[in-house]
């Protein structure tokens, strides 16, 4: 009789198996589990305003904001010269964007930057940075190409600032990309820019004479085979990043493999802020 009772209980337990009661869902909260205690039903709590998380004081302005430390210059309330006026206005306008990286950029940072770039940036900006990513091909506003003069001249702090705070249609990525990774992405942007606008002392032989076409974006339409299109677009972008070709034969400007660009940047060295420049050689 007991046996039969247990069989029935087993059968009931099996029938109820789909509900997964018992110890499957315990009273404690799993990350991101719904929690009725709070009004927003989040078990994962947002940081309360006006608090600083441990280790997140972010004192280093250069490292965490992309703006250089402001020189301690005297401010005159009533400037007596042009120069003093300039100084005061600059001070009032805020600190200038950083021209240098907060730490020395090594091969490791390029690799990391490339990886993060391809995860977070490439969907819109494209693998080669021409602003022709897949999302843009689906109707998102096209971002500017990195390979325009304005952005080639922009200080590194600009890119860092854009990743951290967003610009135009681009949202910020501060929650998803930690500052060190943002700088690595900036380093990778520099490599991309060099690879698509390079002047070489010796032009390698065998470069096709035709100028590389500027990537164009077809109008948005219903897709027949999205994975195939994706593969084709990525192959084109990678081809551009992996080969030699003319951008501007008159000015002797080439696009070169991005690996070569990384080597060139490592040889020349990317600018590092003064406080750590001395230590760069050691790393």
């Amino acid at each position: 009789m007991k046996f039969r009772a247990s069989v029935v209980a087993c059968a009931l337990a099996l029938l109820a198996g789909g509900c997964r009661r018992e110890m499957y869902d315990q009273p404690r909260l799993e990350p991101m589990e719904r929690f009725e205690f709070f009004a927003d039903r989040r078990s994962l709590r947002p940081q309360p305003p006006g608090t600083v998380a441990r280790g997140r004081l972010l004192e280093d302005r250069h490292l965490y904001t992309g703006y250089s430390e402001q020189a301690k210059q005297p401010v005159e309330l009533f400037p007596t010269s042009e120069e003093a006026l300039e100084r005061t206005l600059a001070r009032l306008a805020g600190p200038p964007l950083a021209e240098s990286f907060p730490f020395a950029i090594t091969r490791r940072h390029f690799a990391r930057g490339r990886e993060r770039f391809e995860i977070f940036c490439a969907p819109c900006h494209g693998l080669a940075g021409y602003g022709d990513g897949m999302v843009v091909r689906r109707g998102f506003r096209r971002p500017p190409s990195y390979h325009i003069e304005r952005l080639r001249q922009a200080p590194v702090g600009h890119f860092f600032d854009v990743i951290s705070r967003g610009i135009g249609a681009m949202d910020d990525f501060a929650d998803r990309i930690p500052p060190e990774d943002r700088w690595a992405i900036v380093a990778w942007l520099r490599a991309l820019q060099l690879s698509q606008w390079a002047r070489l002392p010796e032009i390698p032989a065998g470069i096709p004479p035709a100028r590389a076409p500027t990537p164009e974006i077809p109008p948005v339409r219903l897709q027949r085979d999205p994975p195939a299109e994706l593969a084709q677009v990525q192959a084109e972008q990678r081809a551009r990043l992996g080969s030699y070709g003319w951008i501007d034969p008159e000015k002797k400007i080439l696009h070169i493999p991005v690996e070569r660009a990384v080597e060139l940047l490592l040889e020349a060295g990317l600018p590092v802020r003064a406080s750590v420049a001395g230590k760069a050689g050691e790393r």
């Binding site: 391809e118 969907p123 897949m134 999205p226 994975p227 994706l230 990525q234």
Partner: peptide, 15 residues
């Protein structure tokens, strides 16, 4: 759509 069609990396969302 998002992975197969747009090529988003897993970590783009599940970072």
């Amino acid at each position: 759509l998002h992975v197969g069609g747009l090529g988003l990396d897993c970590r783009h969302c599940h970072w």
